[in-house]
Computed example of a mutant assay.
Amino acid sequence: MYRWVVVFLLLMLVGLQYRLWFGEANLREILALKEAISEQQQANEKLLERNRQLEAEVQDLKQGLAALEERARSEMGMIREDETFIQLIEPRQ
Rank of each mutant, 00 (worst) to 15 (best):
M1N: 15
M1Y: 14
Y2Q: 07
R3F: 12
W4I: 11
V7D: 15
V7K: 15
F8W: 07
L9T: 13
M12H: 06
V14Y: 10
V14I: 15
L16S: 04
Q17I: 13
Q17W: 11
R19M: 12
R19T: 07
L20I: 00
L20C: 00
F22T: 00
G23C: 00
G23Y: 01
G23I: 00
E24K: 15
A25P: 02
A25T: 02
N26F: 00
L27H: 07
R28N: 13
E29P: 00
E29Q: 06
I30S: 03
A32R: 06
K34M: 04
K34V: 02
E35P: 01
A36F: 01
A36P: 03
I37R: 04
I37K: 10
S38C: 02
E39V: 04
Q41A: 12
L47S: 05
L47E: 11
L48C: 05
E49P: 00
N51K: 14
R52G: 04
R52L: 12
Q53Y: 04
L54H: 04
L54N: 11
E55G: 07
E55S: 12
E55D: 10
E57D: 13
Q59G: 11
L61V: 07
Q63F: 04
G64H: 03
A67K: 07
L68G: 05
L68F: 12
E69D: 10
S74R: 03
M76L: 14
M76S: 03
M76E: 04
G77S: 01
G77M: 02
R80G: 14
R80M: 09
E81C: 02
E81I: 05
E83I: 03
T84E: 10
F85N: 12
F85P: 09
F85C: 14
I86Y: 04
Q87S: 11
Q87P: 02
Q87V: 12
Q87E: 14
I89Q: 12
E90Q: 11
P91K: 03
R92M: 15
R92E: 15
R92F: 13
Q93R: 08
